[in-house]
Design a protein around this nucleic acid. Structure first.
Lengths: 205, 205
DNA sequence: TTATTTTTTGACCATCTGGTCAATACGATT
DNA sequence: AATCGTATTGACCAGATGGTCAAAAAATAA
C-alpha cells in the first residue's frame, strides 16, 4: 500500500461536504458556543448521530472548517508578487480582500468569531502559517520602500489596516446595513482605492 | 412623590455595579451564548440566585451593558467639533478611538461580538442613536470638503475605516499578539497618523 | 442470492444551564 | 428587644445539548 490514507467513498465525500457547508452557515452566524449539533443536523439534512458518524464531535467540525479556511484566507497575500509593480500589487491585494468580504462573508465571520474569542483553536495555525507569511511579505514591502517605490510606512500595520478595512464590510455587516443606503461595497472599492493610493504614493513624502 | 423611580440603596448600587463589571469580563471574553450565569456569579462573588435578584435574567444584564456602552462608544464622535480644524478634528477622533481600543478592549469586544452575531439586541440602538449621529457628522465632513479643507472622499466610508482600523487592535488582539513583537499600539498611532493625514490632505488632490 | 461492510437512525443518557422558590439572614427603625 | 422590609442562599427543576449505542437499513462484494 502506497497510500496510508483510506480512500473515502463517494457518500463520505458528499456527506462530509454537506456537513461542513451547513456548519459554516451555523458557526458563522452564531459562533462556536452558540451553535448546536442539532442546528447543523437540520441545516445539513442529516440526523445528529449520522453527523457524529462522520465527525468525532462538534469541535472536530469546527477545527476542520478553520483549517480549510486558512488556505483560502491567506491565498491573496501569498499571491502578492515581489516582481510586480508595488502599488498595483498592494491594491490588487486590497481588492481581492474586499471581494472576499463580499463573496465569502461567512468565512470572514467564522474567522472573526474565532479571533475575538482569543483564537482558542487557531493560535497554532496563526503561528505556523500566518506569521511566516506575514514576515516574508513585510520584508518584500520593506524592499519596495527601500527602492523608493512606496512611501515608508510600517508594513505590518499596513497589513492590519487592509485586513480590518476590508473585512469590516463582512464582519460588521449588521452595522453597515443600518448606516448605508445602497450597495456599500462599490463605494468601498472607490474609497479604499483612494485611501491606499494616497498612503503609498512615494512622491508624497 | 416627585420621583417615580425608586431610589436604590447603597447595597443595590454596589452589587449591580459588581455584576455588570463581572458580566463585562465574561461576555466580552466568551460572547453572549458562551457566557453562563454561573461564570458571572463566580466573577462577581455573588450567588446565582442573588444575581437574579438584581437582574431579571441573563439577557437583561447583557442589554444593560450594551446600553451603557453606547454612550461611551459614541462620545468621541459626538465631540468632533464642526468649528475646529478639520484634519486635526478627525485625527483627534482617530486617536481617541485608538485609545479606547487600548483602555477599553472589553467594551470593544462586547460590541464586536454583538454586531458579529447580527446585532440581535442592538439594532434599535443603532437606528436610534448611531444613525442620526453618523448622518450629522457626515454632513459636517462634507461641509469641510466643500470648503476645500479636506480632500473629497466618501465620509461614511471614512468613518468605517476609522472604526475598523482602530478597533482592530482590541477585537483582533489575539492575532495582533501573534504577529507583533513589542507594543503595537504605539506603532499604530504613528501609522494611523500618517494614513489619515495623507488621505485627508486637500492639496494632494 | 447471499454475505459483508458501510451508513443511518431512534432511543437514551449525563451534564449543563437559565431560572424558581421557600426559607433564612441581615439591617434599619421603633 | 421586637418589627419589618431588604438581601441572600440551598435545593431544586425543566429544557437544551453533546454524545452513545445497539439495531436496522442500504450499499457493495461474493
Amino acid at each position: 500500500m502506497v497510500e496510508t490514507e483510506k480512500k473515502s467513498s463517494r457518500i463520505q465525500m458528499r456527506n462530509r461536504a454537506r456537513i461542513l457547508e451547513a456548519a459554516l452557515d451555523v458557526f458563522s452566524a452564531h459562533g462556536y458556543r452558540g451553535s448546536t449539533l442539532d442546528a447543523i443536523a437540520d441545516a445539513s439534512g442529516l440526523s445528529k448521530p449520522n453527523i457524529l458518524y462522520y465527525f468525532s464531535g462538534k469541535e472536530e467540525i469546527h477545527v476542520t472548517l478553520l483549517s480549510q479556511l486558512m488556505e483560502t484566507w491567506l491565498d491573496p497575500l501569498v499571491e502578492m508578487d515581489e516582481n510586480g509593480d508595488p502599488i498595483e500589487e498592494i491594491l490588487r491585494y486590497v481588492m481581492r480582500k474586499l471581494e472576499m468580504s463580499r463573496d465569502l462573508p461567512r468565512e470572514s465571520r467564522l474567522f472573526a468569531n474565532e479571533i475575538l474569542q482569543g483564537a482558542p483553536r487557531m493560535t497554532p495555525h496563526l503561528e505556523a502559517d500566518l506569521k511566516p507569511l506575514v514576515d516574508e511579505k513585510c520584508a518584500v514591502i520593506r524592499t519596495w520602500m527601500e527602492m523608493g517605490k512606496l512611501a515608508p510606512i510600517d508594513p505590518k500595520h499596513l497589513l492590519y489596516s487592509i485586513w480590518s478595512t476590508t473585512q469590516h464590510y463582512a464582519d460588521f455587516e449588521a452595522q453597515v446595513q443600518v448606516l448605508s443606503d445602497d450597495d456599500p461595497l462599490e463605494d468601498a472599492r472607490i474609497f479604499l482605492d483612494t485611501l491606499y493610493r494616497r498612503l503609498l504614493a512615494p512622491n508624497a513624502d
